[in-house]
Design a protein around this nucleic acid. Sequence first.
DNA 1: TTGAAAGCGCTAACAA
DNA 2: TTGTTAGCGCTTTCAA
Lengths: 344, 344
Amino acid sequence: MSSTLKDIAQRTGKSITTVSRALNDYDDVSPKTKALVHRVAEELGYTPNLLAQRLQKHRSDTVGLILPTFGPRFSDPFFSEILAGVGNQAAECGYDLLVSTQAPGEKELEVYRQKVQGRQVDGFIVVRTRCHDLRIEYLRGAGIPFAVFGRTAGKLDFPFVDEDGVYGMRLVAEHLAGLGHRRIAFIAAPPDLMFARHRLEGLREGLAMLGIPLDEDLMVGGDLTQKGGYEQAGRLLDRPDPPTAIATGNDLMALGVMSAAQERGLVVGSDLAVTGFDDIPLAEHSHPPLTTVRQPIYQIGRQVCRMLIQLIRGEELEQQHVILQPSLVVRRSCGSTPPQMSPL
Amino acid sequence: MSSTLKDIAQRTGKSITTVSRALNDYDDVSPKTKALVHRVAEELGYTPNLLAQRLQKHRSDTVGLILPTFGPRFSDPFFSEILAGVGNQAAECGYDLLVSTQAPGEKELEVYRQKVQGRQVDGFIVVRTRCHDLRIEYLRGAGIPFAVFGRTAGKLDFPFVDEDGVYGMRLVAEHLAGLGHRRIAFIAAPPDLMFARHRLEGLREGLAMLGIPLDEDLMVGGDLTQKGGYEQAGRLLDRPDPPTAIATGNDLMALGVMSAAQERGLVVGSDLAVTGFDDIPLAEHSHPPLTTVRQPIYQIGRQVCRMLIQLIRGEELEQQHVILQPSLVVRRSCGSTPPQMSPL
DNA sequence: TTGAAAGCGCTAACAA
DNA sequence: TTGTTAGCGCTTTCAA
């Protein structure tokens, strides 16, 4: 059914070696032979057995990506976009993408180990970093190439791309303050996630710089889901002294916040300001459209993947560390006039 | 850095063969030798080279999944859930998952071919079927195992799992009719997708059975995105004779419909009924919570993957064709009282 | 310009 | 119970 070099060798009367070299376009093969070999290869529908090639070359031409996800009802746009970015970049460079989903915890490192030891991947992409990230420690120790989306609290001696979450949330703080808000709540992302820390820090700094008092009771934790945002917002809004603005650590939670507010008869944009972070596609067409901080996840995915491949190939990295400046996307969830006439 | 059978053989003074058999727990190896080999393997941190194993075994222990996605701003919860389902099932069975994203079109089959010919995968999962699906024709012709989420308009001589979209939309029709709606619009999914056809058919049948006239002008096409739903709903609502209910071919579009309605000052649930299809996580916490048809995507992903693996292993399939009955999830977007007290 | 031979790391048939 | 031999499909010295 599937032909090999041997088949071509037999048909052409050449040796396997010659066939191999002809196919790989070595210049020590006569043009005539090359043409012959190529023709026969075509006829036979030859495709190299990548497994064999890889065994011999000691590379898998595959990058690994393990999505740190929880449970069956998993549907974080962040992962979709990062996957598309990494996947497309890998494909363009001729690499395969090996994907796994594995919740953070005990078994997580085992999966990394297994893929590394079994030589199934040439390198890893790590996404959604934790402050102390065992995955990174493991990969560093294993001496295998890896590139990271995000930073950690420890030594940043690895290649990464990250967005400047501190700056992003400072923009939010300024925006809300500029609109006159003084009681600002924040539904943060889980504190073990590094980006959560940055975003929280950015908000704190921003408010401090503007001289706006910060009520610790209004700083609550969230789980990144719409449901989580909904629940936390409910609690915040049901307080005797509810906030006038609720900022969140990601868009999904912001959508939940809006639902909770609307359920209570509040008009988002006038009775309550809401902001998100990420600018997922859903943010643009929510009601009202969500004011948020734009993080080009897809592009970051591509860039991290490109970094990794350069690393694998032993090329010099143009930049070892990339920190992107996010921008505020003002829509209508804070009641300010959006820059465009219509959200479309 | 990484040890091989040879290393263990040298250290133990045994032959490579014996080591291999000891490690694979053959019963023609003395317990003593086994123990020795295992100990040394442990010491050396031995992990088999999967590439070598696979070459020799003529299997890749990998299943392929190519997400038929469009463009960079890709974020369809459908894909996230199917990915999680397939991925988890594959992992449980000891299979790797090779993922690609590739928009439908010219180059699509090339990607399938490449993975098949290169022996990179033992089989494929096909998702989001088209009425005439070239991917399926190719795989059928290539004689490689595959299992499908969805059906086609052609001969159903392949293993698949699908949901009964006709039935699902009939439930929607009944629900809306029961609430008194007579002018019902439908924003369909792209007509080349098989599930789109089923759902449209279900709505038509349902309305016909109930004796409700169907206005062809209210049957419009959508692109599965929230934005698409938003735009189409805008047109429908701006008509001189707008519908009182808008059903959609998937949840994402329904969310867009709600935005468009709310932007026009309509109250979803009283001024306008909206329904979706899929029951993605977002549907539960939208505002108002979305009445939709529940399709257990994650579970289907698992099941399709299990099927494929059985096929690969040459096991008998319990069922070649599975069609699941979806159920209506009544929330508040149609104004009916939800069955529970609160959406939580 | 070409081919023989070795080897990547592993498994399996066959002998001993 | 163990080792020898061969081979998966490919690439790469090294000689011819």
